[in-house]
């Protein structure tokens, strides 16, 4: 009798877990299906390579793709080195104590701050105070800040997975601390760091609020040219999508274009996540015996 109840309890538990997983997958599949079925029709070479024309009722999204690319690049350049060095400092050098605990807590909390707050902050700091204006740079820096908590946390986790015995082994051979980190810790942590960074970046690439305050333009058909574009406004995929689906004067007419934009954005983010997964998989395989 007791046995039976235990079995039932277990079956019930598994069913709940399985159901939750199924619900997630169904929702995801539904979103993908919706976007795909309504957006795939407009995807062609012209859509990808042309600028929007005729009040954005025709043409393509190329400037938005390029804009998202450049902003993401600035984001990476800001976020990766600062994030990695911070993580190295926190995990390898800092004396663990109350100060470090407070810093960690602050970082944790930063990752929960709504993105629109980052937008306002970026606007105040980069656009106004540092006089960087509405530009790719301002937006990239703002998104850099937004992703920083992710980069730091992911990098720290990656450093923690490197066994202590690698560090001890190197130190015992007369390596300095920095030599140890450089030659016997970082090489094994970098793939994990990259994975976390890419995931953070994928999130940043889809953000609207932070770039809204700091540089994204409703319509900026001049194709950005390096380097002067860094100080100019730009178009970006998430904002373009927002405009097309809520602010456009012929909203029904441009709906397919909006779905097409969404599809491209989703594709880019899935692509980035896949890269992260591949890196992680390779890394696991290489060191699974350790």
């Amino acid at each position: 009798m007791k046995r039976k109840w235990r079995d039932m309890e277990q079956a019930l538990g598994f069913t709940v877990l399985r159901l939750s997983a199924v619900i997630i997958i169904v929702i995801l599949a539904f979103i993908l299906y919706d976007v795909f079925s309504k957006g795939a029709g407009v995807i062609n070479w012209e859509f990808l390579s042309d600028k929007p024309r005729k009040g954005m009722t025709e043409g393509g999204i190329w400037p938005a793709i390029v804009g998202t690319f450049w902003v993401s690049l600035v984001t990476v350049i800001v976020s990766v080195p600062i994030g990695m060095f911070t993580a190295i400092y926190l995990n390898e050098y800092a004396k663990q104590g109350r100060l470090i605990r407070i810093i960690r807590l602050a970082i944790r909390n930063l990752s929960g701050v709504p993105s629109i707050v980052y937008g306002l902050f970026g606007f105040a700091l980069f656009t106004l105070m540092l006089n960087l204006g509405l530009s790719v740079i301002s937006s990239g820096l703002t998104l850099g800040l937004l992703t920083l908590p992710w980069t730091i946390t992911a990098s720290e986790e990656a450093l923690k997975t490197v066994p202590r015995s690698y560090r001890e082994g190197a130190l015992a051979l007369g390596a300095t601390k920095w030599q140890t980190i450089r030659t016997n810790v970082l090489p094994y942590a970098v793939p994990g760091m990259l994975t976390g960074t890419i995931l953070g970046l994928a999130r940043a690439a889809g953000e609207t609020a932070p770039i809204l305050f700091t540089g994204v333009a409703f319509f900026w058909p001049v194709l950005p040219k390096f380097p002067q574009m860094l100080s100019q406004q730009f178009m970006a995929l998430p904002y373009h999508l927002f405009i097309m689906s809520t602010q456009h004067h012929e909203i029904v007419k441009v709906r397919p274009l909006a779905y097409g934009t969404a599809l491209v954005l989703i594709f880019l983010i899935v692509l980035m996540n896949s890269v992260a997964v591949v890196i992680r998989y390779r890394f696991r395989k290489k060191y699974k015996r350790v």
């Binding site: 066994p163 690698y166 001890e168 082994g169 190197a170 051979l173 030659t183």
Partner: peptide, 21 residues
């Protein structure tokens, strides 16, 4: 060490490590 701790490098690089650094 009590637990052998070779680095995930080649045999050669393990032994050369101390010289290298």
């Amino acid at each position: 060490f009590q637990k052998s701790n070779p680095f995930p490098k080649s045999i050669f690089d393990n032994v050369a490590y101390g010289l290298y650094i």
